[in-house]
Simulated assay, not measured.
Amino acid sequence: MLTVGVASPLSENTLYTVTVVGEDLVGNALSGPHSLSFTTEGPAPDTTPPTVLFTTPVNGAIGAGRNTLLEVVFSEPMERGSVETAFAILSPAGLNTGTFAWNAASTVMTYTLPSSLAHGTDLHWQVTATARDVAGNPLVETLSRNFRTMRQAITTFDFDLRTSGPLSAPDFSRQTSFYNGANVGDWSGDLSYRLFLGFQMTSLPEELVFIRQAQIKWWATGQRGDPYGKLGRLLLEPVDVGEELPTSTSAQRF
Score class of each variant (00 low, 15 high):
G242Q: 01
V127I: 15
T97E: 11
Q223P: 00
I62P: 00
A118W: 06
P114I: 11
D190C: 03
P50K: 00
A214I: 10
P43T: 05
R145Q: 13
T68W: 01
S11Q: 11
V21L: 14
L70W: 02
A29P: 13
L231Q: 11
P45S: 01
Q213S: 15
T97K: 04
E79G: 00
Q126G: 02
H124Q: 10
A93I: 02
I211G: 06
G5D: 05
M150L: 15
K230T: 14
Q200S: 15
R145A: 05
P43W: 00
E207S: 15
Y16P: 06
L30G: 03
I216E: 04
A182Y: 01
V83P: 06
P227N: 11
D133V: 04
D190K: 03
N67S: 11
S203E: 07
V134A: 10
A169P: 00
E244W: 08
L245E: 03
G198A: 05
D171V: 02
A7G: 05
A129R: 04
E84F: 11
W219Q: 14
L95H: 04
P227F: 13
S164K: 05
S177W: 05
A7M: 08
V184W: 05
T176Q: 09
S116F: 10
S91M: 10
P77C: 08
F254H: 08
L245Q: 01
T176A: 10
A129N: 15
G65R: 04
A7Q: 10
V72W: 13
V20T: 10
F54Q: 13
S8G: 04
H119T: 08
T48I: 13
R162Y: 05
Y228A: 12
T156H: 08
T202Q: 11
L2A: 07
G181K: 02
V239Y: 09
P114V: 13
F199I: 03
N28F: 05
N180L: 04
S8F: 08
T247S: 12
D190T: 07
F38D: 00
L208R: 05
V140S: 13
L161G: 03
Y111E: 07
E71F: 00
T202H: 11
S106R: 09
H34P: 03
